[in-house]
Simulated assay, not measured.
Amino acid sequence: MNVYILVVDDEPDVETLFRQQFRRDLRSGRFQMEFAPSAPAAIERATDVRDPSLVLILSDINMPGMSGLEMLPKVRAERPDVPVIMITAYGDAETRKKAIERGADGLLTKPIDFALLRQEIDSRLGQAA
């Protein structure tokens, strides 16, 4: 089974950063990462991947057009089985509260602690196995 992680961010350098951080996992085929440049594209992709192979969505909060917080209830309605972790530069209590109220499974602040993210991914992969 191909296991996917969907990363949603409008910044093009995010894809390069994530591919560098997880290059061994990606090369070995442990999981695949797909990248969506906007919330609408992420909702479409999450809807298209209908089997359990989509194990995690990582989404930036601040994006033009539809924000990650606006996307959250829509993607949760389509894919309640897929955990969503929000990523923000502003890890204040109010942002965290809004994210959790709208269905987020967690909140990571920038700069991203990739060791912590790796633990989260390992946990999701274990649950998907």
Rank of each mutant, 00 (worst) to 15 (best):
Q21N: 13
P73R: 09
M86H: 05
L107A: 04
V7F: 05
I43S: 02
L125P: 04
K74V: 09
V14N: 06
Q127K: 14
F22Q: 07
E120G: 00
T95L: 09
F114W: 12
R118M: 10
P111R: 13
I57P: 03
P40W: 07
R30E: 10
S59R: 05
V75T: 05
Y4F: 15
L125D: 01
P73T: 06
G126Y: 07
D81P: 08
A41D: 13
A128L: 09
T109A: 14
T109E: 15
R76F: 01
A115M: 13
I57S: 02
K110P: 08
P37S: 13
G103E: 00
R50D: 05
L69V: 04
G103P: 01
F18H: 12
T95Y: 06
R76L: 04
S53N: 15
D81Q: 10
P12W: 07
L108H: 11
D122I: 04
I112A: 11
R102C: 03
L117V: 06
T16V: 12
I43W: 02
A93G: 01
A115Q: 15
M66H: 01
R118E: 14
A42M: 09
E101T: 03
T16W: 07
M66S: 04
K74E: 12
L6D: 01
I61F: 08
D13Y: 11
P52T: 03
F22S: 09
L56H: 09
T16F: 11
M63K: 11
R124E: 10
D81T: 09
A115D: 15
A46F: 03
L107N: 01
D113P: 10
E15M: 12
I85C: 10
G65S: 06
P52Q: 10
V7G: 02
L54F: 08
I5S: 06
L58A: 09
K98R: 15
P37K: 10
T88Q: 11
E34W: 07
A115E: 15
R24L: 11
V75G: 02
A36N: 02
Q32E: 12
I87V: 15
A128Y: 02
A42G: 09
P40A: 05
V75S: 04
T109C: 13
K98A: 13
F18I: 06
V75N: 07
V49D: 00
V55R: 05
A46I: 05
